[in-house]
Design a protein around this nucleic acid. Structure first.
Lengths: 217, 217
DNA sequence: CTATCATTCAAACGTTTGTTTTAATTTTAT
DNA sequence: ATAAAATTAAAACAAACGTTTGAATGATAG
């Protein structure tokens, strides 16, 4: 059974968007790589925006459903006990980072795509990102308020955004060839990156400035 | 004394690039906002790429010179003693975050621009970023190897990239209106963001996973 | 004043962009 | 087998893009 034209377009778009960003991919480059006709894009998706939306929606739903599932398992496992920060972050970060594994290892396009979504200016992408992420943010922040009651709600929210930033950078930076060489990041597996990411974010989330040293150095 | 056409173009470009990304700003939008002639861009900068290069170079040099200066002061102050991680990160993060203050508070365009530089696909931008950042990365990683000898060089490099990611997100995320509302990030001053950023990154950099819990949970 | 240089201006150039159109083809259902 | 629907194909469209041109204007120096 062959891959349908629609799927071919989606997969090729995902690959090219992840590598070059949305603005960096024209429909003509896309169809040339995919081996389909130009009009097929508009037939199946209505417009380039429609294609963008479809590409991102497919993975974002998957990622955030997985995050909610992992959070549910943690809640069932810990009951009324505080869930450790590390476990929460693991649940938050594993889904996007290891997405390529769970989909049969079609490559690392998926994770890169999710990371792109966070760094994109495109309005369609940001709308999709927000819609799919809204519930996840609420639930994780709610759980973090139990695990880290010593922080203010504002501080928890900001730090969670730092977590997202670190995640994004972990996959976008290796796309920049010169930095990859400079920092020797090329030989990192996704599991390695995930472990380092969870460790870093756990430390960052849990960090408590020593009281009394609030003044000057 | 009036602002020259060249300066007007640079300032307007900086503002628009920071807000919309490079690909999202056409030269015609730019000159319309700046109130100059279209050909003036090519007269003064040769091409759009030339303009992009000029816009980023101006600030990147400033930021990284400031970083090196702060690092030098720390070295002079601590001598052969290990510089605390927090101080190193403060030196690394203060310059970009507080850039707008040091230039007379023309707005927060500058920091946003630096953050954009990290998230951009544009090749010219990445070349500029790399050229200006290469020495800084080497020096800070070298100093971090003394402050955090228990980490591998690879791990230090990856964590430093996480730091950059958190920094980028801290300024790019508030540009997304829906997330700003959801996370209640709008009323944060640059000093607040800097403090939270340094705290988070210090925790992340210094975090040491307890040995023996390396297996399953 | 005048010659020279730097700068600004309006207009047009050739490409590339996303999109639409109309016809040909393939698939599906009766 | 045939009618209907879904899909693919080739071509053209209008708009926007970065860029170039050549004349007009401004400032500067001899």
């Amino acid at each position: 059974m062959e891959k349908t034209t629609k799927e071919t377009i989606l997969d090729t778009a995902e690959h090219l968007f992840a590598e070059n960003g949305i603005a960096g991919v024209s429909l003509r480059k896309l169809i040339s790589e995919a081996g389909v006709n130009l009009a097929a894009v508009h037939y199946h998706f209505g417009s380039k925006d429609g294609l963008v939306q479809a590409v991102f929606r497919r993975r974002l739903e998957q990622v955030n459903a997985q995050r909610m599932k992992s959070l549910g398992e943690l809640r069932a496992s810990f009951g009324t006990t505080r869930i450790p920060v590390k476990d929460l972050l693991q649940a938050f970060l594993t889904a996007p980072v290891l997405l390529s594994k769970s989909t049969g290892g079609k490559g690392r396009n998926f994770f890169r795509l999710i990371a792109r979504a966070h760094a994109e200016t495109n309005e369609v992408v940001n709308d999709e990102l927000y819609a799919s992420l809204k519930e996840v943010i609420q639930e994780f922040l709610g759980e973090l308020s139990r695990s880290l009651p010593e922080l203010t709600p504002e501080e928890r929210a900001v730090r969670l955004s730092f977590v997202a930033g670190a995640m994004v950078q972990s996959v976008l930076l290796p796309l920049k060839p010169k930095f990859e060489k400079e920092l020797m990041l090329k030989s990192l597996s996704e599991e390695n990156v995930l472990d380092m990411l969870v460790a870093f974010c756990t430390g960052g989330m849990s960090y408590q400035a020593e009281i009394g040293s609030g003044g000057k150095k």
